[in-house]
Design a protein around this nucleic acid. Sequence first.
DNA 1: TCGTCCCGCCAGGGG
DNA 2: CCCCTGGCGGGACGA
Length: 375
Amino acid sequence: MATSPPSSAPEGSGSRHHTYSRKQKSLGLLCSNFLSLYNRDGVESIGLDDAANKLGVERRRIYDIVNVLESVGVLARKAKNQYTWKGFKGIPKALAALKEEGLRDNFGSSGSGKMKFHVFDDDEDTNSNPDTISQPEAPSNNANSKPDNRREKSLGLLTQNFVKLFICSNVDLISLDEAAKILLGDGHNSTVMRTKVRRLYDIANVLSSMQLIEKTHQTETRKPAFRWLGLNERRENTICGVPMSTETKKRAFGTDVTNISFKRSKVDFSANEEGKQLKLQVKTEKVENEFHTNPAEQNARPRSYQYGPFAPVTVAKAGVADQKDTKRVHDLESLASVYRPQYHNQALRDLFDHYTEAWRSWYSEVAGKSLEQVS
DNA sequence: TCGTCCCGCCAGGGG
DNA sequence: CCCCTGGCGGGACGA
């Protein structure tokens, strides 16, 4: 009992604008903090406890972040409690691998316009669930004697499949329930779908904080959906991960969503064939190239990748800068207030202030002389 | 209301 | 057996 959070009193107490907000505890923000904390020179090993302490969160949350970061190549498991920091430069390789893997597994061949998208997530619910209400037989006669059911439902794998959805096809807008439907196979109302979508929310949040994807909404203010940003562009529209302007010249172009229907009632995906495949429009073209899958050339390090909103000082000099940032500074301000975590951890607060301070000076410096080197 | 998603219980699994 | 992992979903927050 009496487990009520300290924010029970909506008024009175001295703290005026305490403004407790769950946003301040979001996975996305945490991920940004995580990234800025380790995306620095000299970092090569990360301890989960260390991360949890520094970020002021419970261990459980670190796992969420770490799992998806690993799926994208930013981290690599080294040992219990230990991860190796690969950094953003580890992303290209991971994505290339995922793409190749996805293309190889998902569609047969002869990509001449369309392809079958078969997520090898190994179908839906599995047989280990005795409470399968009305499941169409679902004999799953395949050699499914692998108790790796755990792994199949892992956040990491889900993340990779979610990413493949984007890089293995040219669909640029996908809502989470569409993704869930695709990754699940087919007809999965009830609990399974909901659970999947919930995981997808987590994944989307951290992917968003890395700016690999972006949240928008389908064509006509419909359902919210995500668009793949990848590693390209982005540097041009952001400054250390901070979006330059709200109205980017980008305009809605989800005109060819074709297969991805927006209906939410019946099973909209035309899942003919084996009921676990569906077609997506694909143009058999190379999505994001710029960095190939050349294992021998893993040294090809791109300029600089984006950094979370909490980019550390050492990163400042590599940032991109242009001019007309009168409002950019303003953005920083709001950003700072918005992102200000409410960690009880004093050390973290200091860290935050330190960064804020550093960025502020950097920003003013940049704004003052509109230097545009880098690139 | 409904979309979003934080929180943490608790079950596997490694040492 | 303890501790690390991390699936899972109740239910609260916020638009």
